[in-house]
Simulated assay, not measured.
Amino acid sequence: MPYEVQGVVSRAKGEPVSLETVIVPDPGPGEAVVSVKACGVCHTDLHYREGGINDEFPFLLGHEAAGYVEQVGPGVTDLAPGDFVILNWRAVCGTCRACRRGRPWYCFNSHNANQSMTLADGTRLTPALGIGAFLEKTLVHAGQCTKVSPEAEPAVAGLLGCGVMAGLGAALNTGAVGRGDTVAVIGCGGVGDAAIAGSYLAGARTIIAVDTDDRKLEWAKGFGATHTINSRGLGQNDVVQAIRELTDSFGADVVIDAVGRPETWKQAFYARDLAGTLVLVGVPTPDMRLDDMPLIDFFARGGSLKSSWYGDCLPSRDFPMLIDLYLQGRLPLEKFVTERISVDGVERAFERMHKGEVLRSVVEFS
């Protein structure tokens, strides 16, 4: 029998979200229904509401989730009811050109459920990142369920489903931060602080947090930042010079741009050491452009300029390992949870997120 639950829906661009009845079908071949226990409120959900992803309204929001498998469809052999899982939006196909070349973290054909969840009147919903988890039960492809230790608290574990994984992976996977490296992170929201936590975990000796908000810089210290720079009112060259002064005048080995604007990307580019690595993990808008960048600077400075998609993670590899580190007390994932809210508080959580008052609001279900 299909499930009838209350979910957070975005009906039109820029309009407040609403709590509406959602019909969740029984799982078909290769699918699973998951009983959601917690789901983080991510900037990507707000981007969907604002029309910044696409115009396939209405959207069923929520994607940073953890819960228990409720039911599996035909052909699903590696999941069973009762398994504790984190939902992921990179369910690798195993057959695309990236997967065949041994780079499944770049999978170009990741799986989603074939069936649709709908409103009570039959209107098809577009689930955020193929998940849609601001509701008690959701339908996903079985490959979107990554089993982890059930000892982890759902409100903490679910954050690996998107933003925290993006930041950790930007440092650990894309940036390949290593022992003794110097790192600068520009933008200290949830993704930036996760990049700081990943750099600390990797053994970086100097970790510089850059932001315009002193409160966020204090949060960054709690994740391992050794130095902070308040860039409010500073010019591009001032920020670059400040990073250089903290890295023996050379610049950082790895600079992570967790903002995703032309001005922060340029700061990151010039704040690197020669042959250093720049990692862009903040998401730009389609209208943003880089202007007045001399081509000779790209050649003369060398190094690597990278974009990090989902932290270049492989959920089946990374989620269980990171949860184990959390349970060992080596990765403070619990510090990302600023507040716990009910499902009717998502619109207010968007407001707090926009004002920079939270790292993560997390919707909890009983």
Rank of each mutant, 00 (worst) to 15 (best):
F298Q: 05
V358P: 12
R289C: 01
V346Q: 11
S249L: 10
R205F: 02
D344F: 10
A133P: 04
A80R: 15
F84C: 01
L160G: 00
D253I: 04
D55P: 06
F298T: 06
N112W: 05
G52F: 03
V210H: 04
T277S: 03
N112K: 10
Y310N: 07
P25K: 13
E70N: 11
A258D: 10
S366D: 14
G7R: 08
V185M: 11
A202L: 05
G222S: 12
G143D: 06
D55I: 01
T95M: 08
A133W: 00
M353N: 12
V41C: 04
G180S: 06
T44C: 04
T126G: 07
D193W: 01
L119S: 12
S110P: 15
C313A: 15
G67K: 00
D312W: 10
W265T: 02
L172N: 01
V239R: 10
F108D: 07
D45Y: 06
V140L: 01
L160R: 00
N54H: 15
G75R: 09
E347D: 15
H141L: 09
E20F: 00
A133G: 05
V343W: 13
Y270Q: 00
S10C: 12
M1V: 14
V177T: 00
T247N: 13
L60M: 14
C188Y: 03
A176E: 13
G30Y: 04
H47I: 01
Y68K: 08
L333T: 05
V191Y: 11
Y270N: 00
P2H: 15
G169W: 00
T77A: 14
K37M: 10
